[in-house]
């Protein structure tokens, strides 16, 4: 509020003009700072989501299966040259979007897919799998979301690509779209399986 100086009429003129100048310089100084960041921002990609776990071993876990299913999921199960760990839930609308693609991968036997059933009611998850189909080799039921936290999950669905040493190679946040599948996922899987 530069004009507060105007209203403080008694202040000596000299001091007034100096504080006035200081106030007047403030906006342009603030703009310079913002401008520097905007310039820096031009060379950054906001859509690339950073994960601390990339190229690190997947966290150790051992989850019970859904009731009535045989295979639970543990970190020791991640032994194939390449496998997907797909975080899903019956309450997740976006999971419905990627689901047909996962079913297709399963049908073609492209890659083993494991499910991490995140904060879900087991019965609801079973209904969901019965209604839409079950693309998973193994499913771990992460009732309280503890394992999800270890994986750094912040939205469902997320898909982790894990190699034979149990190391997370890549992570896809949000539903797998046909585009991501064709352009990123399939080439990566093919290369890792070589």
């Amino acid at each position: 509020m530069t004009d507060n100086t105007d209203t403080a009429g008694e202040a000596p003129t000299r001091r007034r003009s100096r504080t006035g100048l200081l106030f007047a310089l403030l906006p342009v100084a603030a703009f310079v700072v913002i401008g520097v960041f905007l310039f820096r921002g031009l060379s950054l990609d906001p859509s690339e989501i950073y994960s601390v776990l990339i190229n690190k071993p997947a966290p150790a876990f051992d989850l019970a299966p859904l009731p009535g299913k045989d295979n639970g999921l543990a970190s020791s199960d991640l032994t194939q040259p390449v496998q997907l760990v797909n975080v899903f839930a019956s309450w997740c609308v976006a999971c419905r979007v990627e689901h047909p693609l996962l079913m297709e991968l399963k049908r073609n036997g492209t890659v083993p897919i494991h499910g991490l059933n995140y904060k879900d009611q087991p019965q609801a998850a079973l209904n969901w799998l019965r209604n839409f189909g079950d693309p998973y080799d193994r499913i771990g039921s992460d009732l309280n979301g503890r394992v999800g936290i270890d994986f750094g999950v912040y939205g469902v669905p997320e898909t982790f690509i894990v190699n034979g040493e149990g190391v997370i190679v890549r992570k896809i946040t949000g539903p797998i779209t046909p585009q991501i599948l064709q352009k990123e996922l399939l080439p990566l899987i093919a290369e890792m399986q070589k």
């Binding site: 530069t2 003009s17 006035g20 100048l21 106030f23 007047a24 310089l25 906006p27 342009v28 703009f31």
Partner: peptide, 9 residues
Amino acid sequence: LTLYAIRAP
């Protein structure tokens, strides 16, 4: 804003 800094006082 520079013009402002010069003239506003």
